[in-house]
Each structure stands twice: as structure tokens, then as C-alpha cells.
Amino acid sequence: MAMVYDYSLVNLLALVVGIAFLFNGYVIVRSERESLELFVMSLLIGAGLIVVALVPNVFQLVANVLGLELKARAILVISNLTLFVAVTYLLNRIGHMYDRLSRLNEELSLLRSELEEQRIDFEDRQDD
């Protein structure tokens, strides 16, 4: 039984955004500047968007598995779960960045203090 899908501009946009997420994941890995978690998140979101773009009725299957009557409810559940994971990850990253920034500020203050002491010692030696 061949399934015929009704594609729209939304499907095209989802496909483009999904490919952009996959490309972003590739760039992250290639440049080795970010963590594995960010790569996996980009990969999952990109792949999910591509699947939704190519198989629009996938949410009907999700609705059936979750025991929901409407496909729209399945879309909302999956979207909310995805947003929850993304926000939790980003809040975690912000916390880590805040800790790193605090440590960097402490180190910078210590270096400034040490530099000032060395400058004063150098000036004292010049005066002698």
C-alpha cells in the first residue's frame, strides 16, 4: 500500500532547518571547538526535523503509540519534551560558563595583583 503525503512549505522549511542543524553539528565536530553533547543535540534535532519533513504522518504513529487521540497532541508532547531537553542543556551550559568566568576573573585579579607587585619592586630597584 503506497502512502501519498501532502507536502507543503512547512515541510520544506523543516527540511532546510533540519539540514542546517546537521551541518551545524558537522561544523562543530570538524572545528573541535564544542562538546559532544552539543553535537548529539544538533544531530537529533536535525534528524528529527528531516524525518518530520519527509514523513509528515509520523506524528500520527507517535499519537497512536502514546495513546493520544489527536496528532496535534503528539506534536505538542514531542515539542515540549524537546524544548525541555534543550532548555535544560542550555541552562546547564550557562551554569558551567558562569563558573568558568568566575574562575577566570579570580585568576585575572591574582595576575593583576602580582603584576602590580612586580612593577612596584622594579620601580624600587630603579630608585636605588
Rank of each mutant, 00 (worst) to 15 (best):
V51K: 14
I19N: 03
V58N: 09
V29I: 14
A53N: 07
V52P: 01
E32L: 13
M41H: 08
G25P: 02
V27E: 10
V55Y: 15
E37H: 14
E34D: 08
V29T: 05
V52Y: 15
G46Q: 05
L22D: 01
L44N: 02
S35K: 11
V55G: 10
Y26F: 15
N11I: 06
A20I: 00
G48N: 15
F59K: 06
L38Q: 07
V58P: 01
G25Y: 00
V17N: 00
M41N: 00
G18T: 11
S42G: 01
V17Q: 03
L12G: 05
I50E: 04
L13W: 08
L36D: 10
F23L: 15
V52M: 11
L38R: 03
I28P: 08
F59G: 07
E32V: 09
I50S: 05
I19K: 08
L54G: 06
G48H: 13
F23K: 13
E34N: 09
G46V: 00
A47T: 15
F59M: 14
V16H: 03
Y26C: 09
I45G: 02
A20T: 04
L15S: 03
V29A: 13
N11P: 05
V52L: 14
L54I: 14
G48P: 08
V51L: 15
F23Y: 12
V29W: 05
F39G: 03
L22M: 04
I50T: 07
N57P: 14
I28F: 13
A14F: 12
S35E: 11
L13Y: 08
Q60A: 10
V29F: 12
L43Y: 05
F23P: 09
V27S: 07
R30T: 12
R33K: 09
V55R: 14
G46S: 03
I45K: 01
V55M: 14
S35N: 11
G18E: 06
